[in-house]
Design a protein around this nucleic acid. Structure first.
Length: 474
RNA sequence: GGCGCCAUGGCCAAGUGGUAAGGCACGGGUCUGCAAAACCCUGAUCGGCGGUUCGAAUCCGCCUGGCGCCUCCA
């Protein structure tokens, strides 16, 4: 593999790209905020999952041993409300939605995290951390609740680059007289009647939203992590609060070395979000077989930039993906020699090397997937060009293998997917296509066209080449 | 009101000091019984104004337009 350039990673905390250095040599501890499971996952979640999946795949490609933790927030107001509406227990609801999440992300080709801790299964460590914060004077109990004392943490605001006083001027914060400061946030909430609860020194209750991630980083990633990621909408207050809790508790900084945030997916001119109700579920695009196209669409935009989700964008990606698949296909048909075949085929070797270096340089520069993808398209075009001359040479095969491997680092599978998708029908389609070939040889074009049209109507594209016909799923 | 981001060809989208990646679409070709696929050719001086510089899409200022966060949110 080509020598990799030093990896540069953009850090939200410092607002600049920094050389990537891990706490432990060769190992990466990565914590990515997961979802609150009260509804199905939408494509915005899918985008985030794909972004961090690619980051992880690339780090692993560079030889890092990545320990990846992603939480499920499985207790909160919305879950309780939703479960009540459906007439089921919160547990039944979250169990179902977690299964759904795993099925959806699996189908998107996302590697499973190393661990998927759940808030309700981390109560012990959470309570311990809250006790520690109270002991250190960073938190205080009130009527069974426990709040974090924001003024006790001098660095508060450093991630989102805000001043405490600026935040107050926002004036959208409900004033709770029991809190010392309006910005103090809950670490523990006493349960109301009928709500799920766990015993604690302060009340039967449940953890606040932010504390679970801090506790999970402690129990699953040794407290301090290399990468802490999530959507840009988590920067404030969630990640800001996590920093306050963890650094106040640990008595050291930084709690996370690199804060990585993906830009948000938009629908039309506004952010896609559950609260706005303008979501498109991941399942909807998976059912249409557009999962891979969605991944390519995400990759063709930089992860930190916002991306607008659109049907046209999906279709454009699907077309582009088809071209890459053609180039990566094993089944390309060789033909008798052509004059320019030899030159074309030898010229491709330097391009293979160039593609490798372009790809790696792009990825090493803060995961510039659009640049990496552009290199793949250039290589794909070169392969198709040589193929067009009908020559299958070792050089082209080398290019093809490179294309497939590099795409694999991005989680894109290019090799033949048509036959498996056609399932049991494949042998019959093969038969029809062979019969049609005989008809064409006999110049029985009307009949040949009838067969082709029939297959097309069934979603099978038939393409006639110099040495016979091939088919693929359209 | 505070903090921040963005504005690149028809659409999407990289590039952050040396004279504009890539994808999709359109048009014109090659190939082909036809079709499809594939390949080839064709298109932008980078929102506006001013400044810094030998040189700016790329740095600075102002303006216009759009977006995000400040409240649950990937």
């Amino acid at each position: 593999m080509a020598v990799d350039a030093p990896l540069q990673v953009y850090n939200t905390l410092t607002r600049r790209k920094e050389p990537f250095e891990t706490i432990e040599s060769g190992r990466v501890r990565m914590y990515v905020c997961g979802v609150t499971v009260y509804d199905s996952a939408h494509v915005g979640h899918g985008m985030s999952a794909i972004v961090f999946d690619v980051i992880r795949r690339y780090l692993e490609h560079r030889g890092y041993d990545v320990r990846h933790a992603q939480n499920f927030t499985d207790v909160d107001d919305k879950i309780i409300l939703r479960a009540h509406r459906e007439g089921i227990t919160p547990d039944a609801l979250t169990e179902r939605l977690i299964d759904e999440w795993l099925a959806d992300t699996d189908a998107l080709g996302i590697q499973r995290a190393t661990v998927y801790p759940r808030a309700t299964q981390e109560i012990g460590p959470i309570v311990a951390m809250i006790e520690g914060l109270i002991e250190r004077g960073h938190a205080y109990p009130v009527d069974g609740d426990v709040y974090f004392r924001v003024r006790s943490f001098s660095d508060y605001g450093k991630l989102s680059h805000r001043q405490l006083d600026d935040l107050l001027s926002g004036a959208r914060i409900e004033v709770d007289e029991r809190k010392e400061d309006p910005l103090d946030f809950a670490l523990w909430k006493a349960a109301k009647p009928g709500e799920p609860s766990w015993e604690s020194p302060w009340s039967a209750g449940r953890p606040g939203w932010h504390i679970e991630c801090s506790a999970m980083c402690s129990t699953h990633l040794n407290g301090v992590v290399d990468i802490h990621g999530g959507g840009a909408d988590l920067i404030f207050p969630h990640h800001e609060n996590e920093i306050a809790q963890s650094e106040a508790f640990l008595g050291q900084e930084p709690f996370a070395r690199y804060w990585i945030h993906n830009g948000l997916l938009r629908l039309g001119d506004e952010k896609m979000s559950k609260s706005l109700g303008n979501m498109v579920r991941i399942r909807e695009i998976l059912d249409r077989g557009l999962g891979p196209a969605f991944r390519l669409m995400v990759l063709q935009s930089h992860y930190r930039a916002p991306l607008t989700f659109s049907e046209e964008g999906l279709q454009a990606a699907e077309r582009g993906l088809a071209r890459l698949r053609t180039a990566a296909s094993d089944a390309a048909s060789p033909l008798a020699s052509e004059d320019n075949a030899e030159t074309a085929s030898t010229d491709i070797l330097p391009l293979v090397a160039e593609t490798q270096s372009r790809f790696h340089a792009a990825m090493a520069d803060d995961f510039d997937t659009p640049g990496a993808v552009a290199a793949l398209f250039d290589l794909g075009r070169a392969i198709n060009r040589v193929r067009g001359t009908g020559v299958a040479s070792p050089e082209v095969e080398a290019a093809r293998v490179t294309l497939v491997e590099l795409a694999g680092i991005l989680g894109l599978t290019l090799e033949d997917v048509a036959v498996p998708l056609a399932g049991d029908a494949a042998p019959f389609i093969d038969l029809l296509v062979r019969v049609r070939d005989d008809l064409r040889a006999a110049k029985q074009w009307a009949l040949a066209d009838t067969i082709r049209d029939g297959l097309v109507a069934q979603g099978i594209a038939v393409e006639d080449g110099p040495t016979g016909s091939t088919w693929r799923r359209a």
